[in-house]
Design a protein around this nucleic acid. Structure first.
Lengths: 231, 231
DNA sequence: AAGTGGTCTAGACCACTCC
DNA sequence: GAGTGGTCTAGACCACTTG
């Protein structure tokens, strides 16, 4: 059994004794106390951070984390889903521009390659902590008024349904784990290259027309998802 | 920008030139060629393995991986889902015993704490490669004949529906990322402590009675999931 | 300025696979 | 036995936060 795993096991015991939010001793002190190198201690801590048990903040220290947030895997508003859990939702627009559709995007939106597409990239947060990076693509031809109508920090879902008359009918969502790029990690205030949950969604309206393509990257250490299954 | 990320970017280019299944040069040679330490090279390789782009085999080498398998997130048989994608499903029983239900398990199965529960732990594989570790819990009181009826390498889903008259109606599935324990990693033939997808499922029959509690751990580098969403 | 976590180096030994 | 990836050490410097 790897040494770092034995260290991880002992750390979990220590963690359980300390309360949520409590500060861990510095890595160097822990390494000395456990009689291992700093590398081994960091490997153990790294896994606990990925598991969502610890949170490391550069310049400050390492702290016992709060449990993961569980979000519904559904065609509903992010705002409403978070409010239902007693959390305060937040959004920050990173980019809002137009790009030319590549082959994949064109296929997902049912338009031609090279046609203009709205790209809206936002950091989603819960109680002030960034938990996800959501990039939404919509056809400019289908939603020419989007830029004029959308309040960037408001709910895109509400804007589409209430102001643009879109009726969501079905969607397909892909879930996988990936490692964030440095840019993505920075936007999510995740210093290390942590495992993330990548959700890729295509949604259609009641006429079967594609509405949007969404690429959402969620912090794997902070968020989980819940789906309801039917045969 | 971290050095290992620059290395990762250059490796991706190299990877794309090589075909699927091609062998990468040894870590030490790559490190020397790129002018970085072996640690930095391993960090880059580690992320590419987690991303499912590379596969490392101790004693053999590192190889360009095949794309991830996408499984449906649904109340259907694992066997049928895999066959539908042209893969050969496999199952290997790791443990099949009875345990006493703890509080959480008792709640999920709708039985009392301490009551006996079937525990069936199996390694699921696709085309001979292990992709997941599935642990299923069922009430002994409800399914007393299970041990006598179930063909361990057969489909549990088929056994329950065809032989025991169970009718699946709905389920709730939780998805999150975790780091595997050494035991889990060994069973999945994943040497490193890779990010995994943990699925936790509770399913009920047409009378609303709990059928099973399932804890499935899938290799995050090999598998993704697809869900169909409806409002 | 001090202390924290984040990155990186150079080198060692082990476990495994193949010849 | 040789070569591969996996683990671990000791030490260095950087980026960041707090005093």
């Amino acid at each position: 059994m790897p040494l770092h795993y034995a260290v991880k096991t002992r750390l979990v015991e220590l963690l359980d004794r300390l309360g949520e939010g409590a500060a861990l001793p510095p890595e160097r002190a822990l390494a000395a106390e456990f009689g291992v190198s700093r590398w081994t201690m960091r490997q153990a801590i790294r896994e606990l951070v990925a598991d969502g048990r610890l949170r490391a903040r550069q310049g400050q220290g390492t702290f016992v984390a709060t449990p993961k947030l569980i979000q519904p895997l559904a065609l509903v508003s992010y705002t409403e889903a978070l409010r239902a859990q007693g959390q305060t939702p937040g959004r920050e627009v990173v980019t809002f521009d137009e790009i030319a559709a590549d082959v994949e995007l064109a296929g997902g939106l049912g338009i031609g390659e090279g046609e203009p597409v709205h790209r809206l990239e936002r950091v989603l947060s819960a109680d002030g902590q960034p938990i996800g990076l959501e990039t939404t693509y919509l056809s400019v031809a289908r939603f020419p008024a989007l830029r004029a109508v959308l309040e960037p920090t408001g709910s895109l879902y509400r804007c589409l349904t209430d102001q643009l008359g879109v009726r969501f009918a079905e969607g397909e969502e892909l879930v996988e784990t990936v490692i964030a790029t440095p840019r993505e990690a920075e936007l999510l205030k995740a210093t290390q290259s942590l495992p993330m949950l990548l959700l890729h969604r295509n949604s259609r309206d009641t006429d079967g027309r594609p509405i949007e393509v969404v690429r959402s990257l969620y912090r794997g250490d902070r968020v989980g998802f819940r789906a309801t299954l039917r045969p």
